[in-house]
Nucleic acid binder design. Structure first.
Length: 261
DNA sequence: ATGGTAGGAGCCCTA
């Protein structure tokens, strides 16, 4: 059995103390980070190594994006793909000794206007997810787990107001269609919603909303999916809402799951 | 219809 967590950290260097606190308190076997905003060589690996996280597979760039997989189980680099040819560090994969492959994604946020004719970034987001769909269709993933900040909240109960967010990037029908097509192409099972099927569930609250806890205008942007052959092994999903209230928090909180593999 | 906050780089971009 192992546990896996995904967390958009919004600067791994600034929030090194939060990462070490989380690793100490929760002790996931694998932690997938997004928005590290750091070249790989400047990620504070020694602090993580001191807590037993001896392995890291990462892709980075200065200032933007960046994905890393920290692990206290041995992992090897399983490559990356430049979805939508953006030249961004938004995907990396690692392989455990038991053959399970972990994909860590940071899907583009997509800008403010949900129209690719007037907002290039929205088109890039749709293209990115369409290429994920094509890759999953071609690869037919098995013994695989995919996690990350997908920047799309697919279900009505993944947002604070379905009606008010229908034209807000992250919950528009075209984005949801793209995401569900990618999920379907790989046969991926949404482990978080398999375990927590009912009710409002969020992993992100904007920095711009003070009083985030009371207002609770959240969205579920962070996901853990499993290939269909191992979906039954996934269980014990959690979303650590309380961490949004930590000092100098990320605007995202960790999502966790366990796998009996 | 608007503005609200945060991080990194470096006087503006992205989220």
């Amino acid at each position: 059995m192992f546990t896996i967590a995904t967390w958009n950290i919004n600067s791994v260097r600034l929030r090194e103390p939060l990462v070490t606190r989380f690793l100490s308190e929760e002790g996931p076997d694998i932690l997938c980070l997004q928005e590290c905003k750091s070249p790989v060589e400047k990620i504070p690996v020694e602090a993580f190594r001191a807590l037993g996280y001896r392995w890291m597979v990462a892709r980075g760039q200065k200032g933007y994006n960046g994905v890393a997989i920290l692990s206290r189980l041995p992992i090897e680099d399983a490559g990356d793909r430049d979805y939508a040819s953006l030249g961004h560090a938004r995907h990396v994969a690692a392989r455990l000794e038991n053959g399970v492959v972990i994909h860590n994604f940071y899907v583009p946020a997509g800008g403010d206007v949900p129209d690719r004719e007037v907002n290039v970034k929205f088109g890039q987001k749709l293209d990115f997810v369409a290429e994920m769909r094509d890759a999953f269709h071609a690869d037919n993933p098995t013994r695989s787990i995919m996690v990350g900040d997908l920047n799309i909240a697919p279900r009505e109960d993944d947002v604070w107001s379905h009606k008010q967010l229908l034209k807000v990037v992250s919950h528009t029908p075209v984005e949801v269609d793209h995401l569900l097509s990618a999920q379907d192409a790989g046969g991926w099972v949404d482990i978080t919603r398999k375990d927590i099927p009912d009710g409002q569930l969020y992993s992100w609250w904007s920095y711009r909303s003070p009083d985030w806890d009371v207002a609770d205008k959240g969205r579920r942007l962070d996901h853990i999916w499993a290939s269909p052959d191992i979906a039954n092994a996934g269980h014990a999903s959690r979303v650590l809402r309380g961490m949004r209230g930590w000092e100098r928090p990320s605007d995202h909180v960790p999502v966790l799951a366990s796998f009996d593999l």
